[in-house]
Design a protein around this nucleic acid. Structure first.
Lengths: 332, 332
DNA sequence: CTGAAAGCGCTAACAT
DNA sequence: ATGTTAGCGCTTTCAG
């Protein structure tokens, strides 16, 4: 913002005109090899860095994208942001970050103020309605992460598979009665998982499933949940996510239970801390890097006017020590 | 980026000229109350959002700042980013995020490409040399977080106090022999802490302190460290940060030790997971919100041409259950 | 207090 | 293949 070396300075040094420098930089093949050489050398020598504002104003493209998350402090979103931004930078684009603080209003505001200034927006775990978001972003391409919506590009984690992997893992371990913690009804993924659970259950009529009440998908929610779980008498449990599983585990332990001996617990998300806790957490992990990168790919498609599409990525089971076999007493 | 409602549209609707709209928006007191009213109404009705690029180009200010972190996935930095961006948005500014992936080179590149396009840059835990950063940012105001450098604005955590709080806490609990894990020599904070340790030790000649080897400030580093610790025979330990403390704790437990009974452990940073682990982690917490907000304040001072200054924030002890009294066998 | 006009640094369309 | 020219949407003089 402070600096001053302009395209014209480069042009002067290289002995060509500004337009030529611009071309040399954006479409190198459209200038003669020697001109290109000379321009590049001048750029190097002067340490020229393009002024994006000017570029955006003139060209209509900002070479920057935005990503909106409910909370950057949540490792799930941090990981996605990490990978998206890496990939964006690799193609020389800047990324603007907005943290909506889990507020629908702030999310909407962010979308509105960002829309004018970036080529596209990635909204992670959208809180506002699709309609709201669409109208406040006024035509700027958007892709959703973790929510599917009609006519929108989105990358989602296969929730059916998430449920299936968790349940079947417990089944393989010999569990006959499992408990399932549904997520908040307001979450898109909660609704899908509930449907998936019904489908999976149907395939295993011998399995008894207790549907618990819904708890917040965080550590505290898990702690509260732990109280209800004991009553359920299930030997296995599928938590809504890793944070919740962590709460369930620590509370259960302090309640005198032994994990996994008294209760096998499966989390979801695959956050790094699952590996560092005691017991380490068996979880259905989401491929967060893929998610972040695909989101950017989809955004690029949207920016280039291609048709919207939704891609579903597959989670995978990470077997650790919060689950164990009911048969031999061994961990899986 | 896609959108189209311009200042002129607003001007037309409000029946005034573009310049007036611009003034009404940026210095409301410079236009008549009724004009202001009319303009604001038109803005509202049209859903006008300023084009930052144009504003930046014309006014020389971008109304955006950048923040560079070594790794957004690290909750320490995520927290800082969270608070900085909240405050920035509150004053209607956008924030660009760059994750250097712990690479000095990427950090430098980020500073260079960002410098032209924002009003100022916050660099968290700088990896590159101050000189390098300064030259690649070509005059754009910079503030450092977690590193102090001559002539630069910076917000740092009081490392002397960090060491003192940790050591004195252990002392109060009756520990006579403590171990201290130094951080990587390349960290600014490691060097300061070592000096602080020497000073604190001098005040307590009765205390035996074993300086361990340096381990990586992460979970794995902690695990490796746990092996060396047993040999030290200390009853208390000051880890370099919470991640490392976590590694030390889990490894120690799996080695058959009991925490805090056999070893009291103090972490540093005060990351949220310290509360959710078992045992919960006693730690010298950094006021991350303050850090993030002060960083922005300092940046604003720099942007406004005020003198650079360094502010030191005070960490505070969070007593939890990874430390206990050697006297009564009770947790503190 | 407000209108008019001159660019900010760059790209794109048009010449040559 | 390269020079030339006209803006992009806004802020900021400078008049009035």
């Amino acid at each position: 913002m402070t600096n001053s070396i302009t395209l014209n300075d480069v042009a002067r040094l290289a002995g060509v005109h500004a337009g030529t420098v611009s071309r040399a930089l954006s479409r190198p093949e459209s200038v003669s090899p020697q001109t290109r050489e000379r321009v590049l050398r001048a750029v190097e020598e002067l340490g020229y860095v393009p002024n994006l504002a000017a570029r955006q104003l003139a060209g209509g493209k900002s070479a920057s994208i935005a990503i909106i998350v409910p909370d950057i402090t949540n490792p799930f979103f941090a990981a996605i942001v990490h990978h998206t931004q890496r990939k964006a930078r690799a193609s020389n684009r800047l990324v603007l970050l907005a943290d909506s603080n889990r507020s629908a209003h702030e999310e909407k505001e962010a979308a509105a103020s960002l829309s004018r200034n970036v080529d596209g927006i990635i909204v992670c775990a959208p809180i506002s309605s699709t309609k709201t978001l669409l109208s406040s972003s006024k035509g700027t391409p958007i892709v959703f992460v973790n929510k599917k919506a009609e006519g929108m590009s989105s990358v989602i984690i296969d929730q059916e598979l998430t449920v299936r992997l968790a349940v079947e893992h417990l089944l393989e371990l010999g569990h006959k009665h499992i408990a399932f913690v549904p997520g908040p009804r307001s979450f898109w993924s909660s609704r899908i998982r509930l449907g998936a659970l019904a489908a999976v259950i149907k395939e295993y009529p011998q399995l008894k499933v207790t549907l618990l009440k819904s708890y917040e998908p965080d550590f505290e929610g898990g702690q509260h949940c732990a109280l209800e779980i004991r009553k359920a008498k299930a030997s296995g449990l599928v938590a809504f996510n890793d944070f919740q599983a962590l709460g369930i585990i620590t509370k259960s332990i302090s309640l005198g239970m032994s994990i996994p001996d008294d209760l096998s617990i499966v989390g979801a998300d695959g956050l790094p801390f699952g590996e560092t806790m005691l017991p380490s957490l068996t979880t259905v992990a989401a491929p967060l890097r893929e998610v972040g990168e695909i989101a950017l790919d989809l955004l690029d498609s949207e920016i280039n006017g291609l048709e919207s599409k939704s891609v579903k990525v597959s989670p995978f089971l990470v077997r650790r020590s919060s689950t164990s076999s009911l048969l031999s007493g061994n961990s899986s």
